[in-house]
């Protein structure tokens, strides 16, 4: 009797284990499917024209995605410019003054901000930047992406700065180093690899965002000449091409998705390696 009950319990244990493994498999299935289709359908379209040519007028086959590629680079560059310095410094504030009342408010705001839907951020930047400047621009798109990156960078910087031993900060202060220099050259520098990982993950996320760009950077069939013109980007191009009825544009959408996915994967994998290297080095 007792043994039977044990056998039953073991059976339940096995079943749950099997269920967990099954769940893992179920989650990896779509990942594999996405990777497989993006690679197999996208790789054929990756020719020189894809990277160097302008899109053809609607319905004509051929052409490339050069404006979208440079546009995405511009947008990501701008958003880094707008988000990394204030994000890191806000992280410094949170790690040093995070227990004051304002510190708590700021941390709370960062957490809430990171949960705001990206489309809402797009609306906000449209209302504030696009309507005042009267046209869509890479500048506005960069701000929208920066708003998405800002809280992530601030919070990850805070967490990493808290890991820097107090002894190091005291060592620098004890040498008569001003607070700001000790923070930048000793504390931030020690935490730099970790902060870089946080930034890379934030960039990877921002690079693939589409919704906030729809009403900020908008789109452009031609290469934008300045940062204050409507600007194409890979994600928005994928979106518009996917909705089009043309076979050739679908093909290009897959290729663009492949490029985007490669960039995002590259950032994620190198962030991962950086973490491992750092942990292993200590």
């Amino acid at each position: 009797m007792r043994l039977e009950r044990y056998a039953w319990r073991r059976l339940v244990d096995r079943a749950v284990r099997a269920g967990c493994v099954l769940s893992m498999g179920l989650a990896l299935l779509p990942l594999c499917s996405v990777l497989y289709y993006v690679f197999s359908r996208g790789v054929g379209g990756l020719d020189l024209a894809f990277f160097s040519e302008l899109p053809k007028p609607v319905g004509e086959p051929g052409g490339g995605m050069a404006p979208a590629i440079t546009g995405t680079l511009k947008l990501v560059g701008l958003s880094c410019l707008f988000a990394i310095p204030p994000g890191v410094l806000a992280g410094v504030y949170l790690s040093e003054r995070g227990e004051t009342r304002f510190g708590r408010v700021a941390r709370f705001a960062a957490d809430v901000l990171s949960g705001v839907p990206s489309i809402t951020v797009g609306l906000f930047v449209y209302a504030v930047v696009v309507t005042t400047m009267k046209h869509f621009s890479a500048f506005a798109g960069g701000i929208a992406l920066a708003v998405l990156m800002l809280p992530t960078i601030a919070r990850s910087t805070e967490e990493l700065l808290k890991l820097v031993p107090e002894a190091l900060r005291e060592a620098a202060l004890g040498l008569g180093v001003p607070h700001w220099r000790a923070t930048i050259r000793v504390v931030l520098r020690t935490a730099a690899p970790g902060i870089a990982v946080g930034v890379m993950l934030a960039v990877a996320r921002a690079a693939g965002e589409t919704a906030p760009l729809l009403f900020t950077a908008f789109n452009n069939r031609f290469a934008a000449e300045s940062l204050f013109e409507p600007t194409a980007s890979l994600p928005v191009s994928i979106y518009t091409y996917a909705l089009s009825p043309y076979e050739d544009w679908h093909r290009q959408a897959w290729s663009a998705a492949l490029v985007l996915l490669l960039v995002v994967l590259l950032l994620n994998v190198s962030a991962r390696l950086l973490v491992r290297h750092r942990v292993g080095g200590r």
Binding site: P165, A167, L168, E170, V186, T190
Partner: peptide, 12 residues
């Protein structure tokens, strides 16, 4: 100047 209880050279 100050020398601390636990030696704290800059690790980097």
């Amino acid at each position: 100047g100050m020398v601390f209880q636990k030696a704290n050279p800059f690790p980097t």
